[in-house]
């Protein structure tokens, strides 16, 4: 037979004591709860995020760092090697070639992408364009397209025999264009990245522009400024912090480039080798060469380069700002 557990009210006496028990509860409990709640509430609200953060970011980082201090070989098993993997990464030509390639890529891609994003955002914000809602969505769609679809799409568009641009050029008598051959590969990949991320940056700029008060616009109109002057002289400086942030994000994203080379490799295997970008190099080292430890070291080395690059840019931006 199940036993009846003692309920709190029974402590104060059953039956007739119930009413007094209830008011006693009301009197005592809420007071205590509020005091405790005020201190604990932030942590309670943060807990879900912190758990996921710890589990999916911090724990893997610690695990990867631990892996990077060891070496496991096909014959002989694992042993502790300290910073050997990092020394090897610093001397690895494949790693630095990849970084250099990405700086080139970045110089090509970031100005074009952010420039276009800015222009589109300013046009949309100025109220001169019709069907703004449609354009906002249309520009954003490439970002929403999965990378694999984008790769298939651009693989077709870039095709030297059956792609539309090449076919057009053949029809015009200029011969086939092989976008992915030789020096054209990096710009072609940059083009894909511009197509993918312009919309994303545009949305960020648009949101920043929307927060600029309307009376500034009226004031500058009264002072005789054209819409263009208002855009360049007033709006741009006001969203400069946002632009700085997007530049830093772009630098970080560029240095970690992986998806485009990975998906395009089948189309240009003679150009995109297993160490085309450092992130891709880390991937092939882990999953093809089975050198998990070295792969972890490369990832951290890449992280260090990203940190230096973005911090360096922030210093540059702050110095300019202070002058």
């Amino acid at each position: 037979m199940p036993t009846i557990r003692a309920s709190p009210s029974s402590e104060l006496g059953a039956g007739g004591g119930a009413a007094t028990a209830a008011t006693a509860r009301l009197a005592v409990r809420p007071h205590r709860r509020i005091v405790v709640g005020r201190r604990l509430a932030p942590y309670v609200f943060l807990a879900p995020f912190l758990l996921l953060f710890a589990g999916f970011l911090v724990a893997p980082l610690l695990y990867a760092f631990q892996m990077s201090l060891f070496r496991e070989t096909l014959v002989g098993g694992a042993r502790f090697v300290g910073i050997d993997n990092y020394v090897r990464a610093i001397h690895d030509r494949n790693f630095w070639d990849g970084i250099g390639r990405l700086f080139q890529f970045g110089f090509m891609q970031i100005p074009v992408m952010l420039g276009l994003a800015l222009v589109f955002a300013l046009i949309l914000d100025s109220g001169m364009a019709l069907a703004r809602g449609f354009f906002r969505v249309a520009f954003f769609i490439p970002y929403a397209v999965p990378g694999v679809i984008a790769a298939l799409l651009w693989g077709y568009l870039y095709g030297p025999a059956f792609g539309p641009f090449s076919q057009l050029s053949v029809a015009m008598g200029l011969g086939q264009i092989d976008f992915l051959a030789g020096g054209g590969l990096l710009p072609s990949l940059a083009n894909i990245a511009v197509w993918e991320y312009t919309g994303y940056n545009m949305i960020i700029y648009y949101a920043a522009l929307q927060s600029i008060p309307r009376d500034l616009e009226e004031a500058s109109a009264i002072d005789g400024a054209t819409a263009l002057q208002h855009a360049i002289r007033i709006k741009l400086p006001l969203i400069l912090p946002t632009i700085t942030v997007t530049i830093i994000f772009s630098i970080i994203g560029t240095l970690q480039l992986f998806t485009e080379p990975y998906l395009m490799r089948n189309l240009a295997p003679s150009q995109i080798n297993s160490h085309y970008t450092p992130n891709y190099y880390a991937y092939t080292e882990a999953f093809t060469s089975q050198q998990y430890n070295y792969s972890a070291a490369i990832s951290f080395a890449l992280g260090a380069v990203v940190a230096v690059a973005s911090y360096g840019f922030m210093l540059l931006a702050n110095r300019r700002g202070r002058r």
Partner: peptide, 11 residues
């Protein structure tokens, strides 16, 4: 010397 296993190659 084109890459194998692409749509272009089959075509």
């Amino acid at each position: 010397v084109k890459p194998m296993w692409t749509t272009e190659w089959f075509a």
